[in-house]
Simulated assay, not measured.
Amino acid sequence: MKKFGGPALFLDRSDINTDEIIPAKYLTEITKEDLKPYLLEDLKLPGFDPKSEKTYGAGAVVTRANFGCGSSREHAPWVFEVNGINVVIAQSFARIFRQNMFNCGMAAIELSPEKIDQLFTYAGAADAAIEVDVANTTLTIKGGGREESMQFEISPFDKALVLAGGWVDYADSKY
């Protein structure tokens, strides 16, 4: 079974849009792999370096509300996918971005503001990592000598998409 999560990248801002996730000037690239070096290139956050090892070594992103707003491009989830990030955890997502994540076999997990705040208490831990068990709808965060788990909700259909590896694999197994 596919593993979800890994080292955590914390992006402490709401309304991060698809142009900040992958700038529009790269949308003419031919393959998903061609998008890889441009992950979060235009995201401006204090102390954030889009070219850092922390960014390119991440397996999970924790952020605030309305993540993935802006255009409906699939390139935004793709750039995470080619960089090994298969989980984004936020208070809320733009509807199309969230569905594009599921369609690509990636987890878009919505949590309450209180739970997001709990996760952000790990942001200062250099070893912060998140493991997600999609089948059992639990996530575990570890770092700085601490560990805690929490439940999340996902619709049965979206869970099936993620567990199948995305829409194409799901359709191949059903039709």
Rank of each mutant, 00 (worst) to 15 (best):
K44S: 13
A58F: 03
V134E: 01
F157P: 08
I22S: 02
T140Y: 13
M106I: 03
I116N: 05
T63M: 09
E114D: 14
V87W: 03
V88W: 01
D49Y: 10
N86W: 03
K2V: 13
S155Q: 11
T63A: 11
M1P: 15
K115W: 13
Y175N: 11
V82R: 02
A135V: 00
Y26F: 15
A65E: 12
A160P: 06
Y170W: 14
V88A: 02
E74M: 04
Y175P: 06
S72Y: 08
A129E: 13
Y175E: 09
P113Q: 01
D158S: 15
D117M: 10
G165W: 08
W167T: 13
N83Q: 01
L111A: 09
V168R: 13
G57K: 09
Y122K: 03
D19Y: 12
E41T: 03
A60P: 04
G165T: 07
H75T: 06
V132C: 02
I30Y: 10
S173K: 12
A94Y: 07
G70E: 04
D158R: 12
T63R: 10
E81S: 14
A125R: 07
Q99I: 13
A126E: 14
A90W: 02
L119N: 14
A24E: 13
F152R: 05
K3G: 03
Y122I: 03
E148I: 08
T31S: 11
Q91C: 12
E41K: 11
N136I: 06
D127F: 07
L40T: 05
G166K: 06
I96K: 04
F10Y: 08
F93S: 00
K25R: 15
P23A: 00
Y26T: 09
G105A: 09
A171T: 12
F93C: 03
R146T: 10
N86E: 02
L9S: 06
V62R: 01
M1H: 15
C69W: 08
L35G: 08
N17I: 07
